[in-house]
């Protein structure tokens, strides 16, 4: 992490360089024009997308690609809706054929209401995908042992949840996120749980390479404005991380000198 190219503070995943540390989802928006406007405002360079059957009964329906250009944004196809390794591999093989790239987001979830990462199934799918030549960014539990194992298997980015998907609760377990970051040699992204801008700031202050946000932008009253807030929040958190925060202390320490006082 923290590789510096020229004057920019970029991050690298699977050999691809990104200046924006905000990755955004394209789901849950009320329509495609709003999706496009919010993503533009977020400054994101990488967007997650889902793979689904074409609707044959409405063939003229607008397509995501017409609003969010795969030439401009790096598409990160996900495995949302897959509950087994076989389904995940099958879905991403189709995504690879549709898009022509290998970089993917693996997520194998348990059932509602937790939608928590199903780690045994995630390991199995990661193994199969890596064997099949995919570059896997993996959504996972905030478990340092699991994260290390996924990295050792060859995953190109580790993406622990901050809180349950769509919950907007922010990073619930900063200690474990920090431990995952400290031991990782690949980028770590907080994926899921961000509710508002300071949650993204907080995740970046912990030292994440980037943050992945969908619901918090898409479901905000004004998604475009929230996209701008997230962009600023991520930048603030990154700068604060690089600046190095002061230690937390259990006592006061005066900001003004105690010498030269008038008598």
């Amino acid at each position: 992490m923290g590789s510096h190219i020229g004057t920019g503070d970029v991050w690298t995943v699977a050999g691809r360089k990104f200046a924006s540390r905000l990755v955004v989802g394209t789901g849950k928006y009320k329509d495609l024009p709003t999706t496009a406007a919010a993503i533009e405002a977020s400054g994101a360079e990488m967007v997650t997308v889902a793979v689904r059957r074409v609707n044959l009964s409405d063939r003229n329906a607008p397509m995501l690609q017409d609003y969010v250009s795969p030439q401009r944004y790096t598409y990160l196809p996900n495995t949302a809706g897959c509950f087994t390794a076989d389904e995940a591999v099958r879905t991403l093989r189709l995504a690879r054929e549709a898009g022509g790239w290998n970089l993917v987001k693996l997520e194998v979830l348990g059932p509602a209401p937790t939608l928590y990462p199903d780690m045994p199934a995630t390991f199995e799918a990661a193994k199969a995908l890596i064997k099949d030549g995919f570059e896997v960014m993996v959504y996972c539990s905030d478990d340092p042992i699991a994260a290390k194992r996924l990295e050792e298997m060859g995953c190109v980015a580790i993406m622990p949840l901050g809180a349950p998907i769509g919950s907007g609760l922010g990073v619930q377990n900063p200690l474990m996120i920090q431990m995952i970051i400290e031991q990782a040699k690949v980028p770590v992204l907080v994926d899921a749980g961000v509710g508002t801008a300071y949650d993204a700031t907080f995740a970046m202050e912990l030292g994440c390479a980037a943050v992945l946000v969908n619901s918090a932008i898409a479901m905000a009253d004004d998604p475009v404005l929230m996209a701008r807030a997230m962009k600023a929040g991520v930048k603030a958190g990154r700068l604060a991380f690089r600046a190095g925060r002061i230690p937390r202390r259990g006592f006061a320490s005066a900001s003004s000198p105690m010498t030269g006082l008038i008598r």
Binding site: G25, T26, G27, K28, Y29, L32, T35, T48, V49, A50, V51, R52, R53, V54, L56, M63, L64, Q65, P70, Y75, P77, N78, A80, L94, A95, A98, G99, I165, A192, L212, N214, S215
Partner: peptide
């Protein structure tokens, strides 16, 4: 036959 495309997702 399955025919798929990309749609919005998180």
């Amino acid at each position: 036959i399955e025919i798929v495309h990309f749609i919005g997702g998180g």
